[in-house]
Design a protein around this nucleic acid. Sequence first.
DNA 1: GTGAAAGCGCTAACAT
DNA 2: ATGTTAGCGCTTTCAC
Lengths: 325, 325
Amino acid sequence: VARARGRVTIEDVAAAAGVSRQTVSRAMNDMAEINAATRERVLAVARELHYRPSRFGRGLAGARQHTLGLRLHDLMNPYFPELAAAVARTAAERGWTVVLSDEQSATEPAADLRALVRQADVAVGYLDVGDPRVTDTLHGLPFVQIDRPPSSPFGGVEFALDGAMDDAVAHLGSRGVRRPAVVAVDPASGRMAQFAERLTAAGLPVVAQAAIDGDPIAAGVAAVQELLSSHPDVDAVLAFNDLMACGVMKGLHAAGRDIPVDVRVVGVDGLTLGTVVTPALTTLAIDMRAVARDAVDLAIGIIEGTEEPRAVRRVEHELVVRDST
Amino acid sequence: VARARGRVTIEDVAAAAGVSRQTVSRAMNDMAEINAATRERVLAVARELHYRPSRFGRGLAGARQHTLGLRLHDLMNPYFPELAAAVARTAAERGWTVVLSDEQSATEPAADLRALVRQADVAVGYLDVGDPRVTDTLHGLPFVQIDRPPSSPFGGVEFALDGAMDDAVAHLGSRGVRRPAVVAVDPASGRMAQFAERLTAAGLPVVAQAAIDGDPIAAGVAAVQELLSSHPDVDAVLAFNDLMACGVMKGLHAAGRDIPVDVRVVGVDGLTLGTVVTPALTTLAIDMRAVARDAVDLAIGIIEGTEEPRAVRRVEHELVVRDST
DNA sequence: GTGAAAGCGCTAACAT
DNA sequence: ATGTTAGCGCTTTCAC
């Protein structure tokens, strides 16, 4: 029963059971044309020998098994697990396997991508498009970018915040907000610039508060502290995302401000986290299931040739009003 | 340039570049013995033909690439992403790839495990050991169980809560707690029974409150409500885990109780979530990094033959006192 | 129902 | 520096 060479192969099982390799293959794969007694005998021998079919041999010879690479920036940031859960679900429904690549796990820049390139048929998720080291590492691996910026060289899923922002501005106005602030690492660009623009257009002058680039919670706490010292009269804070919004709420609690009476707080993403904190967070939520479905379907479509490699989909955010406003 | 067959192989590139397969292989794998000009030419052709080496061919012929399966109960539960992040990190350091298997993604019971069995060399994580469907599905895939119960047929990482519990009991006593309660789906078994025993031994009579089996947050909220109506005088709640503890805190807030003045709350796990909520949660924390390191090292050791298949390691919890007590 | 032959795509080892 | 040979372990024909 002991093996000479490193691996137990189908040949070993065949020899030990006194049958051909094909018969072992039939037994292992539950195929029809095999005697029930033979199958049991072969399976018993296989178990005894600790035989496990090589996924490489199987993949080469048989029907391709497809693998989706999921690239995330940081699993410790609760946004990404929610996305990962949705992607895993969709991939499982489609019969695809998911290999995980967490940028924070990389021992050197983009090192995590090398594994994806070797293991996945197509990848989905987050990627720093500006960094040529990153895109070079892909070596032609098709990539479906989530939260795709307009300038991206890849296709993917774009996020549309416009409608939800309009709703949020109207909502805050109706709540009597007069002095809103936006808090982000770079409050003058991207979605926060849009936000500020809309608030201004609605007659609400906006304070922009920059936050440090790091742990979003800590950044949110620090940012409100600074904000409150320079503008003690703010009555609403729009944070870049839910995580930073939670930091903002922590900072407001610490400063003795009542939410939502003194200050109203709005986040972006729609994380479950927002329902756990007190008060529950009003947010511009995105439907992760829809994002995952679109991304995975694009990815599979690219592999199957039914989608253009750079196809784009769009998912809308939606205002979810909870207790923080 | 157009291809007749489905896949572009190394042979196609070799033919198009006018070299042998081996030279293409040398170019693709950055090997030494190749003319720089030749390499560039070959790579250009490969790019033009959209050639991507087959991972199966490569795996069969070359050095084995190792893959770790990570089995989780539910990615939406923040405990699991924190574990996943730690496992991903350790695996990356060891040069292993991680394939993800989320039980919640399974379209039918244990279906998610089938993918693991086909794709991973060894698996790590959570598994319902009681269910024979589950263990049968493994088909001999070595499994390293995390939070391994003493009765498990697998090896893995055991959690040791004893010391942290003693610390927690002493801590609550010193805070003047007189009427503690334990809240869990089954407060009469496992770690909560231990907890109750220790509290009783310390002269603190314990109320046991069962929670429904479902979303831990909602369960926590519902459980405290019931608890407060039957025992309005409780002055401490020990929850089964941090998530349920957050639900308990929500419920206490809603009931107008002040934490920690009226009621003190303790969770188990040490999730980051506990630092986000207000007040920050006191908890029996486990070092996820240590858990992940032990689990991954056991898994790799089993594959490399340096560890027994059923080897066991132990990781201690530690009391982390924050604002909720 | 079972076995023999062929080949999946690639790289290691050995040629040249 | 490049080409040739020989497999890796498995499933698919196709025979019987």
